[in-house]
Design a binder for these strands. Structure first.
Lengths: 339, 339
DNA sequence: CTGAAAGCGCTTACAG
DNA sequence: CTGAAAGCGCTTACAG
C-alpha cells in the first residue's frame, strides 16, 4: 500500500495525493475529499523513510546521554528532564530516538554518525559524569543540539542548566538568616562539573556572608551513593568536629549522612541541620523528611524543547539559559515548612 | 556525500560499495580495503532512510506505554524495565523509538499507524492502567510485539510478566511461617489487571494456608499515591480492627500506611508488620526500611529483548513467560534480613 | 487545479 | 569478483 495505489484508486496523480497529505491548499476540495476517503478506507499510511529520504527531515530528535552509556535511565534527573522534554517536543511534532544500538560501527559512542545515519533533525544532550569527546563532534556539527548541564559551543547549539551558584547561595542564605553560623559541606571526591560548581559557590557564599570557611567542614563522599555519604559522615563524626548545619551536594549522600548522625545519637535538625540537593522522591519519606534544593525540571525540560525547536527551524541564534533553583523546606533543616 | 560519491572515488560500482558496507564476502580484499579507506577518510555514513526504504527493515523498536500517554517516565517500573531492555536490545543491534509526536494524525494513540510510518521492526508494549484499544490493533498486526504485564494475543506477539500469584503467595507463606495468622491487605479501589491478580492470589493463599479471610482486613486505597495509602490506613485505624501483618499492593501505598500507623503510636513491625510490593528505591530509606516483593526486572527486561528479537527474526513461535518474584526482607516485617 | 518525471540514497537479483 | 539497472515510496519544481 503506497501513494501510487491511492493515486490510482482515486484516479489522480501521486503528486496530488502528496499535496493532500501535506496539506497544500492548491487542491480542489472535491479531489481532496475523494482522496481522503480512499486513504481512510484503505488505512493507508505514508512511509517515514521515503519521506525523510526525499526531504532530509525526519521529525526525529536524538537523545544522547553524555557519559557512560546506559546509565541514563538510572539517573533520576535525566528521567525527569526527558519526561518533560518528551511531552513538549511531542506537542511540537517530534518523536524521540534513543541510541541504544551497540553494534553501530566499532565504537558505541559515535553520536554524530548515528545522528547522521538517522537524519535526526536535532539532538538533546544530557550531561553525565564523564563527557566523551564524541559529544563535541556532534555539538560542532551542523545538527542543532540542546545541552542540559553541559556547555555546548557549536554554532547550532544552545544549552540550559540550573544556576548552580544560586543553588549554593540560597542554602547559605537560608542557614544564615536562621542563625546558623557554622556550616559544612559534603561534596564528591571526583566531582563532575556541576558538583564542582556547587562546592565553589558554597565556599564563595560563606565568604559573602562573612561566615567561617573551615577546611575540616568540607568533606568528600567517595561516590554518589547513600553508603558513600554514610561513610563520609561516619569518619567526620569520629574526628569530632561537626558544623551546626550541613549542605550535601546530592540527596543520596545526605541520606547516608543522616543515617550516620542518627546512629551516633545526633538529632536532626536539633544537633545538625541538613539540606540535600536534587529533590529526589525519597526525600519525602526519610525521617525526618529531607529539605533540599529542587531544580526547576519542568522549566528546564520545556525550555530545552522550545529552544531546540527554534534552533531546528533556524528561528533563533544560539543562546544559553540559566534556570533558577528552588528551596524545598522539610523537617531536616529546622525551619517551618511555610518558610 | 552518498554511496555514489564513494563508488566514484574508489572507481567501483555502488553495488560493490553496498556489499562492503553490508559485509558480503564476495568482494576481493583489495577492493574492500580501498573502499574502506575512502569511507573512513571522507567520514561517509550511510542513510537509514534509504536503507529502510529499500529493505523494509529499520532496526528500530517502537516503545509503547499502554495507558495514558506520557505517564511512562514517571513510572519507576517502566523506567527500570526499559533500561534493561534498551541495553539488551542494543546489544542485538537495535535502536529505540519513543512515540511522542502529538501532531500525528488526529488522535495521539494510533500506535499501529506510527509503527508502520516508521517501519519499526517490532514494538515493546508496557501496560499502564487503562489499556486503550489501539494497543490491540498493534498487537494483532503483522508487527512483532512483546508485552510487559499485558497479555497480548496477536500471532506475532508474546508477553512477559511477573507471576502475580507467586507474589502474593510468597508473602502469605512468609508471614505464616513466622507465626502471623491475622493478615490484611491494602489494594487499590479501581485496580489494574495486575493489582486485581495480586489481590485474588492473596485471598486464595490465605485459604490455602487455612488462614481467616476477614473482609474488614481488605481495605482499598483510592489511588496509587503515598497519601492515598495514608488515608486508607487512617480510616482503618479509626475502625479499630487491625491485622497483625499487612501486605500492600504497592510500596507507595505501604509508605502511607506506615506513616498512619506511626502517627497513631503503632510500632512497626512489633504492632503491625508490613510488606510492600515493587521494591522502589525509597524502600531502603524509610523508617523502618520497607520489606517488599521485588519483580525480577533484570530478567523481565532481558527476556523481553530476547523474545522480541526472535519474534522479529521469525525464529520462534509466540510464547509467554511468567517470571518468579523475589522477597526482599528489611526492617518492616519483623524478620532478620538473612531470612 | 493537476500531472509527468526526476531525484533522494540505498539494495538486490541478475548477467557477465 | 564486479557492475548495470530496476525498485523502494515519497517530494518538488515545472509545465500545462
Amino acid at each position: 500500500m503506497n501513494i501510487k495505489t491511492i493515486a490510482n484508486m482515486a484516479g489522480v496523480s501521486v503528486a496530488t495525493v502528496s499535496k493532500i497529505i501535506n496539506n497544500y491548499t492548491d487542491v480542489s476540495n472535491e479531489t481532496k475529499q475523494k482522496v481522503l476517503k480512499i486513504m481512510h478506507e484503505t488505512g493507508y499510511r505514508p512511509s517515514s523513510s521515503a519521506k525523510t529520504l526525499a526531504t532530509k527531515k525526519s521529525n526525529l530528535v536524538g537523545v544522547v546521554f553524555a557519559g557512560k552509556l546506559n546509565v541514563d535511565f538510572n539517573h533520576p534527573f535525566f528521567v525527569d528532564i526527558i519526561n518533560v522534554f518528551k511531552k513538549q517536543i511531542g506537542l511540537l511534532g517530534y518523536d524521540l530516538l534513543f541510541f541504544s544500538n551497540e553494534k553501530f560501527l566499532d565504537n558505541g559512542e559515535d553520536y554524530l554518525a548515528r545522528s547522521k545515519y538517522f537524519s535526526v533533525d536535532g539532538c538533546i544532550i544530557i550531561a553525565g559524569d564523564e563527557v566523551e569527546s564524541s559529544v563535541y563532534d556532534l555539538d560542532s556539527s551542523s545538527i542543532p543540539c540542546i545541552g542540559i548541564d553541559i556547555e555546548l559551543t557549536g554554532e547550532n547549539s544552545s544549552y540550559i542548566m540550573s544556576d548552580n551558584d544560586k543553588i549554593s547561595s540560597k542554602v547559605v542564605e537560608l542557614f544564615y538568616l536562621n542563625g546558623y553560623r557554622n556550616l559544612g559541606f559534603i561534596g564528591i571526591e571526583r566531582p563532575s562539573l556541576v558538583m564542582k560548581e556547587r562546592e565553589e559557590a558554597f565556599a564563595a557564599s560563606l565568604k559573602t556572608f562573612g561566615l567561617p570557611v573551615h577546611p575540616e567542614w568540607f568533606i568528600y563522599s567517595k561516590d554518589y551513593t547513600e553508603e558513600d555519604g554514610y561513610q563520609a559522615a561516619k569518619s567526620w563524626i569520629t574526628k569530632g568536629v561537626l558544623p551546626e548545619a550541613l549542605f550535601a551536594a546530592t540527596d543520596l549522600v545526605a541520606f547516608g549522612a543522616m543515617r550516620a548522625f542518627k546512629e551516633s545519637g545526633l538529632r536532626i535538625p536539633q544537633d545538625i541541620a541538613v539540606i540535600g540537593c536534587d529533590d529526589i522522591d525519597a526525600c519525602r519519606y526519610t525521617d525526618p523528611p529531607l529539605s533540599t534544593i529542587k531544580q526547576d525540571k519542568q522549566k528546564i525540560g520545556r525550555l530545552a524543547a522550545m529552544v531546540l525547536f527554534d534552533l531546528m527551524n533556524k528561528q533563533i541564534e544560539a543562546s544559553s539559559i540559566k534556570v533558577e533553583p528552588e528551596l524545598v523546606i522539610r523537617g531536616s533543616c529546622g525551619l517551618p515548612e511555610q518558610y
